[in-house]
Nucleic acid binder design. Sequence first.
DNA 1: ATATTCCCCTGGAAGC
DNA 2: TGCTTCCAGGGGAATA
Length: 279
Amino acid sequence: MPELPEVETVRTALQLVLTGRRIEGLDWCGKSLRWPLAAQELSDATVHRKVSAVRRRGKYLIVDFADDRPEKLLIHLGMTGSFRMVDDVDSLALHDHLAWRLEDGRLWVFNDPRRFGSVAVFAGTDYRSLPPGFRELGPEPLSKAFSGRYLRRLAKVRKQPVKSFLLDQSIVAGVGNIYANEALFEAGINPLRRINRVSLHRLEVLTGTVKAVLLEAIACGGTTIRDFHSLDGSEGHFSICLSVYGKDGEACPRCGPFHPIRRIVQAGRSTFYCPHCQH
DNA sequence: ATATTCCCCTGGAAGC
DNA sequence: TGCTTCCAGGGGAATA
């Protein structure tokens, strides 16, 4: 479900609700998530602590606490993970996995039907304690480090399709299937093209369209196709801005009705593109 | 080492 | 109205 803009939308909402709040308890439904859940460790690491900030790195959320202890909370929403605030335990629902009780009695609830999400504790300074997928993240796409020159350096020794390259979180952190498709369309690059066959100039164009698409999506509160919603249940509105994602058979926005968008499968994920204007 | 394929899980939509 | 099949914003393990 959530890529960088969706996670950023959730982060902003959580930051407002959690910062300065003390956690007083934790209930767990008993089911494991992406990885087996160490409920006692999770409880020990969060209860009786005050949240100082909610940050984002790639598609991960990081919860910081306002004391000297090193433990932080690391959350990945997977495909269907979401948060909401409820007034009491009577409001808990199917697929609610974790409920943190705050000082005002309200519950901060993590819900995840497909259980691809994950919640973990890590001690901020210990590199080895970080989950592998987290410690190997590439640069943030909205940072200066994510440039055509940077991509060119990595691309030289690789032959995979440019789209799979963008989805690799160790190359760049936070781009997922929707925004990879959209950024490639905006850049006029065929998703099937081998990454080492894309010129430096076009890689510069591509990093530019990735940044632009992500920024625009953040401004829209993300993209809701079916599941995604923010803390208050609100949906993301970038869906109306999509050019190719989910548009199989529809007219290409650039080429018109005689050149439909095509859907193919790359590395098990749907790719949408215009064979006429993406080269 | 790099690049696919399969798998984890539930639910909704589409097809028959 | 079923029942079956396919599909989904994720990543990681297993396999070529």
